[in-house]
Every structure is written in structure tokens, then in C-alpha cells.
Design a protein around this nucleic acid. Structure first.
Length: 561
RNA sequence: GCGCCCGUAGCUCAGGGGAUAGAGCGCCGGCCUCCGGAGCCGGAAGCGCAGGUUCGAUUCCUGCCGGGCGCACCA
């Protein structure tokens, strides 16, 4: 597994290290250690296919001019058995390797053979990793921030899976605690109001319009049966009904968005199973808890946080933080080696104390990674739309999908880094649907499919790569396309390492661009059968790679548009 | 005030210790008798400011300026 680019880079590095060895044993260069050098693909084409910085790093320890060292290394470097055509010393002391162009075409048979697995790498070595994302309160519908979290989390999970990790996608259901109490009083007020009573709506309640519809459904079923019931019983019935309805709506919306979870984890379970109490006990035994003004505090400041935090209020009710600690302990108890949380920027203050709590429980705080995503700002009619469940003003995930489509929305959310703000101009997204980059990529895929259909109609087929002469691919745009295909495994590895789906988004866009350029310059199906065969393999390999990249982002790879 | 994130082209954003910093939109000028013009080709235009580390800084560090978000016995 891994890419041809990585293989060649590694073998060149090995050969250079060997060259340094022989230069050393002959006494030409005097250094104690081989420095940590790199063999990379230079940005400039004119600087070769690969370039090494070894000579520059040796300059100081060897007390020699870098170009002089480079010369010595090159003299001790054997070209036999490699793709290297020539070596050049350039600039301040770079060693630039120029390869026989055919090296790039080695990738094509591999792609055809690996199909939907092309691009898989083994960064993870099967390590178990959990990605928890969205985890929206089941008290309303999903908004734009949740949508970004969904697109990000799902793509990160897919990329990690492709990079060799064993991934679990998890949604944490906040179905207990303070907000549920609040939810209950809000529902109760709506219930009374619907039944004609003049009761005030709680100021801090959930003002969302959707709640009225939910309660109306409850009334249709139960009528005024709960009017005379005891308040606690009434609220419990309302909450049970509403939570179920909201959660189902959330599940449906996420599924329509292309997101499927492995685990839906209930907060209530943590309370009912005694996990919260056990966790508090554990912390207390370790001496990380103290009492102050009748509340129980966690010594978060002892673990690098800014200040200590309340775990149990003076009224005896544990805080959200206490429950969250129990939840994270549970995650580690389930055997995950990496635990990744995707949070909105408004929760970033929570990171240090959560890591502190993990450390206090004897787990490795490094094993908890929190991806902070900056908030989404929604613009409509040139004005900022305030999104808040309390105010009831928000655009839901469903509405977003209706307006711009699932694929466009998902691409938009992951095309930029998570720690970059996202200005989502709804009008623009709606008006310029055709200009959305996702169509550009999908169009490239559909275009190839069209060529392959054409080929089939004419009685032809994509030949077995073993029978193809790739030396016929002499055009620059052919080389550039194949070269880009070879980059895919490396891109997957970087995206996984950086939890950065935007890398895949950009890669797919660039690959599509190269396909379009090639397509406009040259015909695939021509009278020249040998050349057509080579080009068919080239575009088929492009189709496979585009499809794999699109799937990592949860986007469709349409055969027709 | 303290903490985290961000200041890159007119706009929205990628990138990142190296040798000539990219894309989309917008703007200007071209390209189909031809496998899908939802496309292609060309052009103008940029690393907030000041120090520091380094052979080399747009990238790392410090300070400043500007923007966002946090700093509850809320979640």
C-alpha cells in the first residue's frame, strides 16, 4: 500500500544516505550523523521530479560549502536500477532528480487493479478511533453549524477509514439534564396554550416554531388528558414524545445528508447506569475534587485549565461537564485509542478542562483530539441571519439541502479548513448553483463516463493495462494527469494526518481541472487503436480516482448530469 | 483584561522552513462542422506591521494592529 511517489522518494532517500556513507568512509565528508533530510517534490517543474535538501543540512556539521557536498554525494550516487535520468545540483545546494517520464505511468495499472481501493494507505494500522460529531440537542432541528459539523465529521471519519484506521462514528444524544427540564417547561407552555389557556412562555425556553407543531401532534393523540395530570407527569409525557420525534427527524436529516452513525449514545444511560456517580467517585478518590460553597469542584487548574470547574451544583445536580467526563471515560473504556470530538468554536473553552479531566482519570490527554470548527455565518439577502434555537430563527439542514442540494452543501462545508470562518451566502449558493465547484468535479466524472459509454457503443472497451504501451502518452497534459493521479495516496495520508478533508476537496478539484484540460486538447477515441487504448486506461484511472475522492467527501459520482 | 482561532489577489479562501506563493468568483481578450461549452486557452492583481531564530521565513517565535469566539453552580 502507499503511493508510487512515496516509494520513489523513499528509495532516493535511501540511495542518498548510501552515497553519504561511501563519501564518509572515503573520508571525503566528515560528519557524525546523517541529518533528518527530505526528498520532496519541488513546487517548480524546472527543479526536477524530486529534490533533496541533504547537502544544505550537511553544510554546517561538515563545514563545507553545500554545493560542494552535493557534488560529492552525486558522485557517489548510482543511477542504475532507478528511474533517475539525470541529477542536477541547483540553487543553494539542492540535489534535483529528473526521472524518465514513464515512471508516472506505472501508476495506471495499479489504479485499474485497485479500483475503489486506490488511495488506501495504512497510516492507521487498524488503530481504533472514534469520531463523535454533531451531537445536537434533540430539542429542535439541525442548523447550519450542525450541518458543517456533519459534513466535516463524516468526511474525517471516511478519510481515517481510508487511511487504515478502524473508525466508529458516534452521536451523543443530550437527552438528560438541565436543558431537558427547560425543554419540558417549554413544551408544557405550548401544550397549555394550544388548549386555550393563557399561560406565559418561559423566557429562557425553546422558542422554535417547530415545537408548536410537535405539541400539536401530541394533542392530536392525547387531547387534554394531561391537562389535569400532575405537572411532573405531564412534562415527562411531553418530553418523551417530543424527544422521540425530534431525534427521528435528526436521524432522517442526517441520513439524507449521507451521514450514517455506528452508535447513538444516550446521555441518560450515563445517569441511569451510575456511570456519572462512579466517575465522580473515581475523581474524588484521586483527590481531584474539593467542596466550595456547597458545590463540588474539579481541580481543572491543576491540569492546565484556566480555572476550576463545578461538577455538582449546590442543589445536588451534576453539571453537563460532570456527565461529559463520564462519557469520555466510557469512550476510553470501550477501547478507543484515539477519541476525536468535533466541536463548534463556541465550545473551545471546554477543551482544556476536558483534556484535564481525561488526564485526571489516568487516560492520555493526547488521545483526545478536539477539532474546533469556526462558526458558520449565514447570509440571506445580504444580511446576517442570526441562528439560535432559543430565538427560533435558523435555517435547517433540510432547508439547506432543498436550496442548494446535498452535494453542493457538503462540498461547501468541507472545502475550507475547519478553523476558518464560513460565510454561507444562501442567495449566492442558490443563484450560482451551476458555478459551484462540486459540479465542476462531478462533470469531469460524468464526462469520462460518457467517453466510456461511447467506446462501448462502438464495440470497444478499456484494454487490459498489461497490453498497453504507455510510452504512447507523450502529451504534456497526459503526463500531468497521470502525475496527479499518483499523488492521491499521499493526499489521503496528509488529509488523515491533519484531519483535513479540505485537502481532498482541493485535490479533486485540481484533478478535474487536469482532466478537462486534457479533454479539450486531445481526443480519447481515435482511429489510432494503440493510442486510444492507452488514453482509455488513463481516463478510466482518472474516473476511479475522482470517484474515490468524491466518496471520501460523501459526494455522488454521477455517470450523467 | 485573559485564553483560543484567523489576517494571503477586488471578493471568498487554499497552501506552507526552501529556489518563480495557488484556486474559484469578478474583470479583460480568445476557442467547438470534433468523445457532453456545466468545458478550454491567455491577461492584470497578493503573504496586516515590526523585530527574532535560520544557510534560507509568507510558513516557526515575540510584540503590535485588525476581526471572530470563549472566560456561568448554561450546554
Amino acid at each position: 500500500m502507499g503511493g508510487i511517489v512515496e516509494e520513489i522518494s523513499a528509495s532516493l532517500a535511501g540511495a542518498l544516505a548510501g552515497a553519504l556513507e561511501s563519501a564518509r568512509s572515503s573520508g571525503a565528508v566528515k560528519v557524525e550523523q546523517v541529518p533528518d533530510f527530505t526528498v520532496e517534490v519541488p513546487r517548480e517543474k524546472d527543479h526536477g521530479d524530486f529534490a533533496a535538501n541533504l547537502a544544505m543540512l550537511l553544510a554546517k556539521p561538515a563545514r563545507m560549502a553545500p554545493r560542494k557536498i552535493a557534488e560529492m554525494l552525486v558522485n557517489n550516487f548510482s543511477l542504475t536500477g532507478t528511474w533517475v535520468e539525470r541529477v542536477e545540483i541547483a540553487g543553494p545546494g539542492f540535489i534535483n532528480f529528473y526521472l524518465k517520464p514513464a515512471w508516472v505511468y506505472e501508476i495506471l495499472p495499479r489504479i485499474i487493479a485497485q479500483r475503489e481501493n486506490y488511495g488506501r494507505v495504512d497510516e492507521g494500522k487498524g488503530k481504533r478511533v472514534q469520531v463523535e460529531f454533531v451531537s445536537a440537542n434533540p430539542t429542535g432541528l439541525l442548523h447550519m453549524g450542525n450541518a458543517r459539523g456533519a459534513a466535516l465529521g463524516d468526511s474525517i471519519a471516511s478519510i481515517l477509514d481510508f487511511a487504515g484506521f478502524s473508525v466508529t462514528r458516534e452521536f451523543y444524544i443530550n437527552d438528560a439534564g438541565n436543558q431537558i427540564e427547560n425543554f419540558g417547561t417549554s413544551l408544557e407552555a405550548r401544550y397549555m396554550q394550544l388548549l386555550g389557556m393563557d399561560v406565559p412562555f418561559p423566557e429562557e425556553g425553546y422558542h422554535g416554531e417547530d415545537l408548536i407543531g410537535t405539541v400539536r401532534g401530541f394533542v392530536d393523540r392525547n387531547g387534554d388528558a394531561y391537562l389535569k395530570a400532575e405537572a411532573g407527569e405531564r412534562r415527562a409525557a411531553l418530553v418523551k414524545y417530543a424527544l422521540n420525534e425530534k431525534l427521528e427527524a435528526i436521524k432522517r436529516a442526517l441520513e439524507d445528508f449521507g451521514v450514517r452513525y455506528d452508535v447513538w449514545f444516550s446521555e441518560r444511560f450515563l445517569h441511569e447506569s451510575g456511570a456519572v456517580g462512579d466517575t465522580l467517585k473515581l475523581l474524588r478518590e484521586q483527590g481531584h475534587i474539593y467542596e466550595h460553597e456547597e458545590a463540588l469542584w474539579f481541580k481543572a487548574s491543576a491540569f492546565g485549565a484556566e480555572k476550576d470547574e463545578v461538577l455538582v451544583r449546590s442543589n445536588g445536580i451534576p453539571t453537563y461537564f460532570a456527565t461529559d467526563i463520564a462519557y469520555h471515560l466510557n469512550k476510553f473504556q470501550r477501547g478507543f485509542e484515539r477519541v476525536i470530538d468535533i466541536w463548534g468554536a463556541d465550545h473551545h473553552g471546554h477543551v482544556a478542562r476536558m483534556k484535564g479531566a481525561v488526564a485526571a482519570l489516568g487516560c492520555d490527554p493526547e488521545a483526545l483530539e478536539v477539532v474546533i470548527m469556526q462558526l458558520v455565518r449565514l447570509y440571506k439577502g445580504g444580511e446576517l441571519v442570526r441562528m439560535s434555537k432559543r430565538s427560533g430563527q435558523f435555517v435547517t439542514l433540510e432547508e439547506l439541502m432543498e436550496e442548494v442540494g446535498k452535494d453542493a452543501a457538503r462540498y461547501f462545508f468541507v472545502m475550507r479548513s475547519s478553523d476558518s470562518h464560513l460565510d454561507f451566502d444562501l442567495d449566492l449558493a442558490r443563484a450560482e448553483t451551476n458555478e459551484n465547484p462540486v459540479y465542476y468535479i462531478q462533470y469531469a466524472h460524468a464526462r469520462i463516463c460518457s467517453i466510456l459509454r461511447q467506446c462501448k457503443e462502438q464495440g470497444g472497451k478499456v484494454p487490459d493495462p498489461a497490453e498497453v504501451d504507455f510510452n504512447l502518452l507523450q502529451e504534456e497534459s497526459e503526463f500531468a494527469l497521470a502525475r496527479k493521479l499518483a499523488d492521491f495516496p499521499g493526499e489521503v495520508a496528509s488529509a488523515a494526518k491533519g484531519l483535513a478533508p479540505q485537502r481532498i476537496a482541493r485535490y479533486a478539484h485540481e484533478l478535474a481541472g487536469l482532466l478537462h484540460s486534457f479533454y479539450n486538447a486531445h481526443r480519447v477515441i481515435t482511429a489510432d487503436q494503440a493510442l486510444s487504448g492507452a488514453r482509455l486506461v488513463l481516463v478510466d484511472a482518472t474516473r476511479i480516482t475522482l470517484q474515490n475522492a468524491l466518496h471520501l467527501l460523501g459526494l455522488a459520482a454521477p455517470e450523467r448530469m
